[in-house]
Design a protein around this nucleic acid. Structure first.
Length: 538
DNA sequence: GCGATCAGCT
DNA sequence: CACAGCTGATCGC
């Protein structure tokens, strides 16, 4: 009754399927094949029943009653297919993976699923054997490495395993399809879609910010099209990934020509990266584009698209909504048709204190600790970029410099943030305030780290600032936070979030009143979707 | 041998 | 179970 497989977004891991729904959504991303799909006023596909075509899906009846749930499936997230989780609430859907559904990948589960898995594996071994004879999936290298079909048929289970596994590897290496929610309807633009190789008909690739899960796939071999982002993100991409690619050769040729003929090849910039200033309207392929500060990490932007026909789309990238945004000229009294929303903490249980409250707690705690134990090393955990305000706050309050290793210093300097740049120091022995990768904030590591500085420091006070440390029992009463202590090591998990809390998201959505919301982070539980539904309906 | 990608882990 | 990585294995060139 629910035509999920045809309508929802396909899992990113799905190497086999194209987005049939997407192709028909977007005139500029032409449809390749298949029947046309009904579109709504936003050119998003409407739900259709495929019952008469004999398609079967296992979604429970209850869910279709909800328009918002329908919207979710229609707009899609990352899930590839949904099935009832029989072991618990029958209404609860569990995300599954098409690789697993088709037996190309093992389930991690136990019991009955494993049994089914064995059957599927048997089947896939047979399929893989058959597939090998197809010219379309056979290459020279395959011929060398894989046994011929006739041999396979006679082969032992072990060699069938080999055949299947090699086939799986072969298939899994194929380019994955770009999920539709990374494409902007009515344009030839994508957002944070670098891990899919060349996206068909995409003329511009937008990068919301420089975090690995968003720029994934960008490398110096990038050659699929222009990348648009903020100037800070552009510098980070250049610095870290040396995106430049094959055009480098072209530029060298032009340079030689220039030397020989003194032509004006000097104006040629060998790059795919196009920085766009914040708050300035840029016209790209007739679309008005404006980047807006996202209050996430340095260089992070929300992207506002204004199409010639009047439609407006806002992609938040990763963001932490705040009142300031309600004064953005691109958003004030402007209608947004579709909001692509960072729904990382879209659950009422996430009620983070403000950043200011957390910073105040961090400073307070640090001062108290130094009073008790003056020879304490203060460590702030951070991803490659982000959480700068935490160590800047400590630096300001204690009047101490900030130590970061050379690679992080290069990043931080590139922000052109004077207060930060001027606070950096080159030697860890010159300041009690150090920044380290958030993943290294473990007792053992800190122990080793302290060993290096044992001349200066006898204790460690570390802060791990992330929204995931939030606990409802602590809420906004930060002084209730219990540090993880071991000897003279103390680690505080502090709910300093660079994503919106539930209420901030709520306020932002109420302010924007978009026609439609498309979540951009994985939402795998039905309960979550139901909560979102009840909420966003307002 | 090298860069890119991926699973697994935190 | 999410973020935003990191590490080590593997693949293709």
């Amino acid at each position: 009754m629910f035509d999920s497989a045809n309508q929802i977004g396909i899992d990113e891991d799905d190497a086999f399927s194209e987005y049939s729904n997407w192709k028909s959504l977007n005139a500029d991303f032409p449809e390749e094949e298949g029947s046309p799909i009904c579109l709504n006023e936003n050119e998003f596909s409407l739900l259709q029943s495929n019952e008469e075509e004999g398609e079967e899906h296992s979604l429970p009846d209850g869910l279709i009653k909800s328009n918002f749930a329908a919207d979710f499936y229609q707009s899609g997230t990352d899930w590839s297919s949904l099935r009832v989780n029989s072991s618990s609430d029958p209404m609860k859907l569990k995300q599954t993976n098409l690789f697993q559904m088709w037996g190309l990948k093992r389930h991690r589960g136990v019991g009955e699923e494993e049994e089914n898995e064995d059957k599927k594996n048997k089947k896939i071994k047979e399929n893989a054997t058959q597939l090998l004879v197809l010219p379309s999936v056979k290459s020279n290298s395959d011929e060398k490495s894989l046994p011929c079909p006739s041999n396979s048929l006679r082969a032992s289970t072990r060699s069938l395993d080999l055949v299947a596994s090699q086939k799986i590897k072969l298939l899994s290496r194929q380019a994955r399809a770009c999920p539709f929610y990374k494409k902007i309807p009515g344009t030839t633009f994508t957002v944070d879609a670098f891990r899919y190789g060349a996206v068909k008909d995409c003329s511009a690739y937008f990068l919301s910010h420089f975090h690995a899960d968003h720029y994934g796939g960008l490398s110096k071999t990038w050659s699929y099209g222009p990348i648009y982002c903020t100037p800070i993100t552009a510098r980070l991409v250049r610095m870290c990934l040396s995106v430049n690619p094959s055009l480098y050769l072209v530029s060298m040729v032009l340079y030689v020509l220039y030397l020989e003929s003194v032509c004006c090849a000097c104006f040629y910039e060998p790059t795919f990266i196009f920085p766009l200033e914040l708050d300035v309207e840029h016209v790209i392929n007739d679309i008005k584009v404006m980047l807006l500060e996202a209050n996430h990490c340095p260089g992070a932007a929300m992207i506002h698209f204004h199409l010639p026909d009047g439609r407006c789309y806002l992609h938040t990238g990763d963001f932490r909504a705040c009142n300031r945004m309600q004064a953005y000229s691109a958003l004030v009294n402007k209608h947004v048709n579709v909001l692509y929303l960072d729904t990382t903490y879209c659950n009422p249980r996430y009620r983070f204190p403000s950043k200011e409250e957390v910073l105040s707690f961090v400073v307070r705690t640090t001062k108290a600790c130094l009073k008790r134990q003056p020879r304490t090393l203060i460590i702030v955990g951070a991803y490659r970029i982000g959480n700068e305000c935490v160590y800047i706050a400590i630096s300001e309050a204690l009047k101490v410099k900030i130590y970061a290793n050379a690679s992080r210093r290069r990043f931080l300097q590139s922000f052109e943030w004077p207060q930060l740049s001027e606070s950096l120091c080159l030697n860890g022995k010159d300041t009690p305030l150090h920044v380290l990768p958030i993943s290294s904030l473990r007792h053992e590591m800190s122990k080793n780290y302290l060993e290096t500085y044992k001349e200066q420091f006898t204790a460690v006070l570390a802060f791990c600032p992330t929204g995931w440390t939030f606990s409802e029992s602590v809420g906004s009463q930060l002084d209730l936070i219990k540090p993880n202590s071991k000897g003279n090591f103390q680690i505080y998990g502090v709910p300093y979030s660079e994503h919106s809390s539930f209420s901030e998201m709520q306020e932002f959505v109420q302010f924007l009143k978009p026609d439609k919301i498309i979540p951009t982070v994985n939402i795998s539980s039905a309960a979550n979707r139901e909560k979102l539904q009840s909420y966003f309906r307002q």
